[in-house]
């Protein structure tokens, strides 16, 4: 029970009626890459809009009436409160319906749900942020937090991988992040004729720099296979298991640890996660099909 208690950091959430959403308007759609766009949403209820708060790494359930809900992590700055950004990959029934939304259309929101990247506990540390593909949006709120409090953190390294150069998200922001002394290492699975950078998977980027395991924390999100090897590389460099934070992905329906779908052993990923210290999920991490 102690491990469980340790990761139950999220505030109590009750949406007032079972699965009843609040309604928000699409105020901006920012295409990010082929099949991926960021939807900027504003609650129709201005009081709710003022009261809504989230922490980096938390997610909302977005509801498209007639289609259902999808768990989408919040990709915007936690300090920006009037509109909330959700970076969506159009891959399933609900997200393809989101793809058909236009400015002014309405979408249901429940949330925020889940645990967050514990940035408040990581001040003074060197951070390695290792992300792949659609794994970068859940980390962007944490990056914004770090940028705003840059002096409080040590060395920050962003390891970022995408399938091809044109799949890289938020590329227009990366230079700004570099200016704030964030070391950014980018790799792609397949280069194109203009690509001058690294080719290969994210974990190989660990070989490009040295880390001090006594003062380093790793935050990682991406395909499960990438997370697996990021953790492997971090452990090989003696980063403690409770200083590696992983964002797990499971089928999530309710966001409140009630419907059962997202379980990993004792955890409900939607409530006890999605961000876990690796030490909490380690016993189940290498069990096939668990």
């Amino acid at each position: 029970m102690t491990a469980l208690a340790a990761v139950r950091t999220s505030a109590a959430v009750n949406d007032g009626g079972l699965l009843k959403p609040s309604w928000a308007e699409v105020v901006k759609i920012q295409p990010e890459a082929e099949g991926i766009a960021t939807y900027w949403l504003r609650f129709q209820d201005s009081n709710l809009s003022k009261a809504y708060r989230f922490l980096p790494g938390q997610f909302n359930m977005l509801y498209m009436p007639g289609y259902g809900e999808a768990a989408i992590s919040i990709s915007s700055d936690p300090e920006q409160r009037d509109v909330i950004g959700h970076t969506v990959r159009f891959v399933g029934n609900v997200t393809r319906a989101i793809n058909r939304l236009k400015i002014g259309d309405v979408v249901g929101i429940r949330g925020p749900f889940g645990t967050h990247w514990p940035v408040e506990n990581l001040e003074g540390k060197d951070l390695i942020i290792a992300v792949g593909g659609i794994g970068i949006p859940p980390l962007r709120p944490a990056i914004y937090h770090i940028l705003r409090n840059r002096a409080k953190f040590g060395k920050i390294t962003l390891l970022y991988g995408a399938r091809t150069p044109s799949d890289l998200l938020f590329s227009s922001e990366l230079d700004e992040w570099r200016k704030s002394d964030i070391d950014i290492q980018i790799t792609v699975d397949r280069a194109d004729s203009n690509w001058q950078g690294q080719v290969g998977v994210v974990p190989t980027l660990f070989y490009k720099f040295r880390l001090d395991p006594t003062r380093t924390a790793v935050l990682t999100c991406g395909p499960e296979i990438m997370i697996r090897f990021v953790v492997f590389e971090a452990l090989a460099r003696r980063v403690p298991t409770n200083q590696i934070y992983v964002s797990m992905e499971r089928n999530m329906k309710c966001g409140q640890g009630s419907c059962g779908h997202c379980q990993i052993g004792p955890y409900f990923v939607c409530k006890d996660g999605p961000v876990f210290p690796f030490s909490a999920v380690e016993p189940y991490f290498n069990v096939e099909d668990f």
Binding site: R89, E249, R250, N251, H261, D289
Partner: peptide
């Protein structure tokens, strides 16, 4: 039950019964 965008977490009867 365990289907998600990245694939099915429990793709076979063994993993479902065990769950």
């Amino acid at each position: 039950y365990s289907y998600q965008a990245g694939g099915n977490t429990r793709p076979n009867v063994r993993s479902r019964y065990r769950q």
